[in-house]
């Protein structure tokens, strides 16, 4: 309190004892309030049991070329599609300039397993499940998937070609644990 001076009227000048108490009190209350906000915010995030559903094993032995199955990972639909050689050729023949989100089919599949297109069945626009995985469903203008909600068309590599979706269908992290079993997540 060396800097403190007292004028003739007895009023303290400069940094007063009371200023220090005010700042300390408000700071402490502020830290306390912030500490309470943290649990209130984090309680909204996905809980541990939701996160625990993070890997799924799929047997793909029964899927014939040209067929696809719908399964689920983290409660989201996943498409596992066995591409025909023509579909792979069509995906390879596509010019990069025709793609909105430029990726090659090699980047979207595992080496040597190019026929296995594994993507989330979640349209990157607003999250509907595109058609095209089940027999008889519309595959859209590019032979892949078609989202009926807002009209996004995906090609045989699950890449966005037309419609409002911004990006290609998401390829989830996965591994081939054997020739016929895939572990997603």
């Amino acid at each position: 309190m060396a800097s403190e001076t007292v004028d003739n009227a007895g009023i303290e000048q400069g940094v007063r004892r009371r200023d220090f108490i005010h700042i300390a009190t408000v700071s402490f209350a502020g830290v306390g309030a912030a500490a309470v906000v943290f649990p209130l915010v984090t309680q909204m995030a996905p809980s541990e049991d939701v996160l625990a559903l993070s890997s799924t094993e799929i047997d793909i032995a029964a899927i014939q070329p040209g067929q696809a199955i719908k399964t689920s990972w983290r409660k989201q639909p996943v498409f596992v599609r066995n591409l025909t050689p023509e579909e792979i050729a069509a995906a390879k023949a596509t010019a990069a300039s025709d793609l909105r989100d430029v990726q090659t089919i090699e980047e979207r599949t595992k080496p040597g397993k190019e026929n296995w297109l594994i993507t989330l069945g979640v349209c990157t626009h607003l999250g509907c499940v595109p058609l095209g995985a089940a027999e008889g469903e519309s595959k859209g203008d590019f032979g892949g998937y078609f989202c009926p909600c807002h009209g996004s068309h995906y090609d045989t590599a699950g890449r966005i070609r037309k419609g409002p979706a911004p990006t290609n269908l998401v390829v989830p992290p996965y591994e081939f644990t054997s020739d016929t079993v895939v572990m997603i997540g």
């Binding site: 909204m44 995030a45 996905p46 809980s47 939701v50 983290r74 409660k75 989201q76 999250g127």
Partner: peptide
Amino acid sequence: WLLGGFVPDNA
């Protein structure tokens, strides 16, 4: 964060 999950669910 809004959904408390990856898709709308119990949370």
